[in-house]
């Protein structure tokens, strides 16, 4: 369970988040949708304790992320670059992460296999393609077999095969009772994967609810998205708080 409650954030003179609030529930995949620069990454960075909000709280399993002792066993996260130093090998990157949370070494090879990186594991990350980097980041997120997954733009750079594998994996995690929150500006990719949708635009949540609720009378999620984020759409009329 992820709870974002009234989170606000300024950067310089710019208000980048205004009282953002939503929940991501267990057993469901929640899509966090918005145009580039709408505040998706900022929200997720606050959720993961990387940035500090000016107001509001973000909780994972009822606690602030920064209070978790072995966070990887609770939350797996994939953020922007993934954070692998280019001089390290893929395996080396996963190994220190595993060590930091007291996870067994054998787990490193398991997740490498899971994301299909076993053969590239001994190569330096600097030589990885964008897609391989994303897969490595996903492997890191899965190291602790966490019940909660947070993924920022996970399909960026993935080939169609990779996208399909990710989709199956996320559906499986949710089916097993996991909480999955993923952000995307690619609406088409999201529509087939998510149960719930949160739409953010210019730092404010403009719609939230189940996929059907947010889609509403529109032909599809994509139409709803553009109606909601163009500034002329029905605004917060759809859905409502879960």
């Amino acid at each position: 369970m992820i709870t974002i409650d009234q989170v606000s954030k300024r950067r310089g003179s710019k208000q980048i988040l205004t009282e953002v609030g939503f929940e991501a529930r267990p057993g469901r995949v929640t899509g966090f949708l918005g145009p580039n620069g709408a505040g998706k990454s900022s929200t997720l960075r606050i959720l993961l304790g990387l940035d500090r909000p000016d107001g509001g709280v973000a909780l994972v399993a009822g606690r602030p992320f920064a209070r978790l002792r072995r966070p990887l066993t609770t939350v797996g996260a994939v953020l922007d670059g993934g954070g692998a130093h280019r001089s390290r090998t893929g395996r080396g990157h996963l190994r220190w992460i595993a060590a930091s949370n007291g996870l067994p070494r054998a787990r490193v090879d398991e997740v490498l296999d899971l994301v299909g990186l076993t053969e590239a594991a001994g190569r330096r990350v600097g030589g990885y393609s964008l897609g391989m980097g994303r897969r490595l980041a996903l492997a890191a997120a899965l190291l602790g077999d966490p019940p909660v997954l947070v993924l920022d733009e996970p399909v960026n750079g993935l080939d169609p095969e990779g996208i399909r594998r990710l989709r199956v994996l996320l559906r499986d995690r949710a089916a097993a009772g996991g909480t999955v929150l993923l952000s995307s500006h690619l609406i088409g990719e999201l529509a087939e994967t998510v149960d719930d949708v949160v739409v953010i635009d210019r730092g404010r949540v403009v719609a939230l609810g189940t996929l059907a609720e947010v889609t509403g009378a529109h032909r599809g999620l994509e139409d709803a998205f553009f109606a909601l984020t163009s500034g002329t759409g029905p605004g917060t009329g759809h859905g409502g708080r879960p």
Binding site: G83, H85, R86, S129, L130, G133
Partner: peptide, 27 residues
């Protein structure tokens, strides 16, 4: 500096500090 090193925008890597603080969130 290895925590903050990053090459251009869309690299496979990115700044290590992100991974570091999601693995050990207590600063």
């Amino acid at each position: 500096s290895s925590e903050y090193f990053a090459e251009g925008g869309d690299s496979a890597g990115g700044r290590q500090i992100t991974a570091s603080l999601t693995a050990v969130p207590s600063r």
